[in-house]
């Protein structure tokens, strides 16, 4: 018998409305894809497909440029 294992499904393929949320102005939504330190979480952890991971990474970098998202957060300061 084959072992059943949980496969992650891309949230953007399940819900097409979320694709419009991948925008640097929706910084509160994009914060879900950042760690506490401000690093971008890789797609194999969140389950986001490569296509949308590329878009997310680009938009996060735009949001960082305009100070909506941090480049890095030092955990010692909090």
């Amino acid at each position: 018998m084959a072992l059943s294992h949980q496969t992650k499904i891309c949230p953007f393929k399940e819900n097409k409305d979320l694709i419009a949320m991948i925008n640097y102005k929706e910084h509160k939504f994009l914060r879900k894809f950042l760690t506490e330190q401000g690093k971008i979480i890789p797609g194999y952890v969140t389950g986001v497909s490569a296509k949308y991971q590329r878009l997310i990474a680009k938009e996060i970098k735009k949001a960082r440029n305009i100070a909506l998202l941090p480049y890095h957060v030092d955990p010692r300061t909090n």
Partner: peptide, 8 residues
Amino acid sequence: KKKLAYPI
């Protein structure tokens, strides 16, 4: 007015 993610 919003708080910046890092000071500019």
